[in-house]
Amino acid sequence: MALQELTYRDALRKALADAMTENPDVVILGEEVGRYGGAYGVTKDLIKEFGAERVIDTPISEPAIVGAAVGAAMTGLRPVAELMYVDFIGMTMDQLANQAAKIRYMFGGQIGVPMVLRTQGGTGRSAGAQHSQSLEAYVMHTPGLRLAMPATVADAYHLLRMALTKPDPVVFIEHKALYTMKESVDLDAEPLTWGKAAVRREGRDLVIVTYSRQLHYCLEAARTMSAQGIEATVIDLRTLNPLDFDTIRAHVERTGRAMVVSEGVMTAGVAAELSARITEECFDFLEDPVVRVTGEDIPISVSTVLETGSVPGPQLIADTALRMLAGRVPA
């Protein structure tokens, strides 16, 4: 229907508001989610609309925020717990990884934990080593947790709405550098399927697999490459669990080259897992090694120069692709 101009932040807020209107059991709990309106403004004014018993300001107690959400989800609520920064996830890892992720399994399938843990990560605000990380690998490494990382305004809305219908705990990691991004979106349009990657661009020469903010860098790099005669396919995973490997496989088999781009540190990261899978499953189709373009294996600095330099950008992505394609045999 109607296109509207929305920011990523507005879309998230609208997803929460729509879900709360539709389902009276949806409650939000977290630090500064109510009166303050959320550290990044996502829950602004929801408390006015839904009251303090559904938009619950909590003490600074991350483990108990997640733990309370677990108990609430087991007893008939639909909680959305907010972790102000993904960097604080270590504080909550028992409740998240030992409790939320394992309750269905340990208890033999008697009950699930239908909760959403909203948080945000990544670089872009000179927020330093403890407020800028990309820790999705911690989550992806834990069976039982679903993981969504929206890169676009439409996905911010639809993935959050879908997360709030899922029977298992979903960790929903937003990117702090995307909150002000604007897009014209039609929120009434049929959303993409949960667990299905989006092919954001199609090209014959190589596949770039990415997610979250790096999608935009990959698309920018693809435009640069296109000007030099190289056409890339760019896949936005949207959810890392479930992981849509079928889409990756189909495009890698077609192009024979794959690059994985992630803002997280390289070692034992999401890109490592994706690279290993592509290598194992598409080995016979590969012309080149699968190349990981990732964050450096170092903490994030507060200096803008060091911060920007420690994560991939369009230039590195384009340069890497051009080098991969430099020795190709023309079709």
Binding site: D25, A72, A73
Partner: peptide
């Protein structure tokens, strides 16, 4: 655990099961 009897679970992490009752309390209030 047994949901039928309200047993939200025994826990092998010391203190791990404690915050769930806060969530159950929120549910009861709601």
């Amino acid at each position: 655990a047994d949901m039928g009897l309200g047993h939200l679970g025994a826990n092998a992490i010391v203190g791990g099961g404690i915050p769930a009752v806060v969530g159950a309390g929120l549910s009861a209030r709601h």
